[in-house]
Design a protein around this nucleic acid. Structure first.
Lengths: 141, 141
DNA sequence: ACTTGAACCTGTAGTTACTACAGGTTTTAT
DNA sequence: ATAAAACCTGTAGTAACTACAGGTTCAAGT
């Protein structure tokens, strides 16, 4: 572990720890092209610096928030390629935000349905003969 | 297709259609033990009746509500075994609704962030040197 | 009765996004 | 110098299906 200098290079273990993922995940991201192929030590160990960590954190944050790897790839494209206009970036961002809103709507409907089911259930009966949740899922056809 | 009598037995295709899934999915559910091994015709075709359809619909509904197959297995246990309380079922449903709420919260934070980023961007510049969106995505760590 | 086409069968492989080894090498710390 | 930790590659496993391939059976029309 490097403590002294934040700028010192580090290995894949430290990168993974800082990026909140497994070492294997970093290598997987490298294989599918989300992370760059890093420099190596003479012995073949991967060596990373601050920019790669920033990139990994960005990937992880996006993934945690439900973006697919393909979508993360699109977002990273804007970081990687200089020949995009700000307008393109804005359009993609707005498209993403709409998709996120759709997901939110879906989940909210789901949440409502779950709560309504739970609400009907007193939860005390020792018999499942008339459990409203089971009924809702199983009998209401 | 059987139209005349709702009680007549039917094949896996009709079952899948009625359960809103693919034939392969039914066979998959059979393989992993969510659906029972059905009777067969002399030629080996699967034969189903009303109870199996109800079970499949139950499974599909639960899956649509975001329950994992493992959770559906737990729920089906409540259907299959008589010695469970309604409270158990309710607890599982509430746990699921909390998880859905957490996902909603995450996505709402993301949505806000995306809109804020898009808002800062005039979207006209042909240079990405100072695009506020890229800055927010990549540099604000 | 016969034919044809839809529906069915089994089994394997592909999908997404990782995760878990196995079996070996390098680095680091004592 | 040696031992442990970290690393390497490569393959296989996970969830929850989905998509074939290559063959058999069923049902309807003639």
């Amino acid at each position: 572990m490097q403590e002294r200098s934040a700028k010192a290079p580090f290995g894949v273990g430290d990168l993974a720890r800082a990026g909140q993922c497994k070492v294997e995940t970093v290598r997987y991201y490298e294989k599918i092209g989300l992370m760059p192929t890093p420099l190596r030590t003479e012995g073949g160990h991967r060596v990373y610096h601050q920019p790669e960590l920033k990139r990994l954190i960005f990937i992880r944050r996006s993934r945690d928030l439900g973006f697919s790897v393909a979508q993360v790839r699109d977002l990273l494209q804007f970081v990687d390629e200089p020949n995009h206009t700000c307008g393109e970036v804005k359009a993609l961002t707005l498209a993403q935000s709409e998709e996120v809103q759709r997901k939110i709507d879906d989940l909210q409907r789901l949440h409502k349905a779950l709560l309504e089911m739970a609400d009907k259930c007193k939860g005390e009966s020792y018999s499942l003969e008339q459990c409203p949740i089971i009924d809702a899922l199983y009998d209401e056809i």
